[in-house]
């Protein structure tokens, strides 16, 4: 792995870019605390939480810039994560810009409850039940997400790659 010299584009990706990637990006940007409790209301109050629809999948969405000037994006890859990652990495390789993007999969950090909440809200359209359920699931998985974000930020200071 080579060291990153300039700012990179950090892409947190998950299934529908509505839950885990949104929370990870907000943790990265400091909009959510890296320690201490977070409430369901705080999560539901996030502008992007449980909002994205399938038409937005495959399009990186800029969430903001971190303290080092890195751009933080979220991305939904549906069930095509491996193929999507291959597409991004092969394209960046062909363009000679493979060090400009850092990919981070947030799906392994979340549990069944968030998936169930997301399914209820997005697939069944039962937002009033699904959204709080997904938020509660995120709270249960928050430490893993925080660990992932801390790991990503640590890697950004010295290494390029993907997780």
């Amino acid at each position: 792995m080579r060291g990153i010299t300039g700012a990179v584009k950090v892409i947190y990706h998950c299934y529908g870019r509505a839950h885990s990637s949104v929370v990870a990006a907000h943790l990265h940007l400091g909009n959510l605390p890296m320690a201490g409790p977070v409430s369901i209301e705080q999560l539901i109050g996030l502008a992007e939480f449980d909002r994205a629809d399938p038409s937005q999948w495959g399009i990186p969405y800029l969430m903001g810039r971190d303290e080092r000037g890195n751009e933080v994006y979220i991305l939904g890859l549906d069930s095509q994560t491996p193929a999507g990652l291959r597409a991004i990495t092969s394209l960046t390789w062909h363009l000679g810009k493979k060090d400009e993007i850092f990919l981070c999969n947030t799906l392994p950090a979340i549990g069944l409850l968030t998936r169930l909440g997301g399914f209820t809200s997005k697939k069944l359209g039962l937002t009033t039940i699904g959204r709080p359920l997904a938020a509660f699931g995120i709270i249960l998985s928050l430490e893993r997400l925080r660990g992932l974000v801390a790991w990503t930020k640590g890697n950004l200071s010295g290494k390029a790659g993907r997780c």
Binding site: W57, A83, G84, L91, H94
Partner: peptide, 25 residues
Amino acid sequence: YLLPRGKEGKLLLTLIQETARLLGE
């Protein structure tokens, strides 16, 4: 270029185009 996209390839095509845009192409 060649791109084996599988049966459902719309997302991959969007992703390539949008990533290219992201990288200044």
